[in-house]
Amino acid sequence: MTGYFKLDGRSIPFQPGQTIIQAAADADVYIPHLCYHPDFTPHGSCKLCSVQVNGRICSACTFPASDGLEVLSETSDLNARRQKITQMLFVEGNHFCPYCEKSGNCQLQAVAYHVKMLDSHFPHFFPQRPLDATHPDVLLDYDRCIFCALCVRASQEADGKNVFALSGRNINKHLIINSESGTLKDSDIAAEDKAVEVCPTGALLRRGQAYKTPIGQRQYDHQDIEQVSLQQEKAHDV
């Protein structure tokens, strides 16, 4: 089905099979997201892309576009919810940005800037999570994992491997590695894998890159994730 839906009062055309977030991106409208990536099956887990569809809150990355929908995205209520969701992602893990290699290139941090998050609001969990430094080329810092499952999907769908999975529920949810020892060194991971590249946070890192680009000159240091994301979507479509 093709047609139009209304997004914050603007008429947005869509192609058959598109979700709200895809049609919006094609029309140059950014809807904040973290677990969505145009190359992979949507996961609908982070809820950052929450929009109001005909009065109900839904995930724009999984909701199919259809003719005549009334969608709201940039409302103060939804933006306040997005800020709270981002704050929850921060307090649930251990995010010490000043010492994180990914700082300035991190989508979680960039989304926080975009939703004008100044503080973490909630009490911090300070969970005890391990660090997997067993692999010579790839590092996994579980402290920074937000369980978006992008690495899980990229490993399966792009790399033709099956290195990662999410295990457990609720507060016990965690990322696991498909290898005998449960560590990266015995897995099929390689530094060039899409799984490493797509991680939106500093959880999965290619080693030896650290400070090649100095802090202050990184992707989101002077550019809002809204612009970066829309440019990437354009490049992706080409």
């Binding site: 921060f90 251990n94 995010h95 010490f96 000043p98 503080d119 911090h124 999570r129």
Partner: peptide, 14 residues
């Protein structure tokens, strides 16, 4: 950062 989320000193929390 330290006032807002504990910052680097809070790395001892683990």
């Amino acid at each position: 950062a330290c006032a807002i989320n504990g910052g680097l000193p809070a790395m001892r929390n683990e």
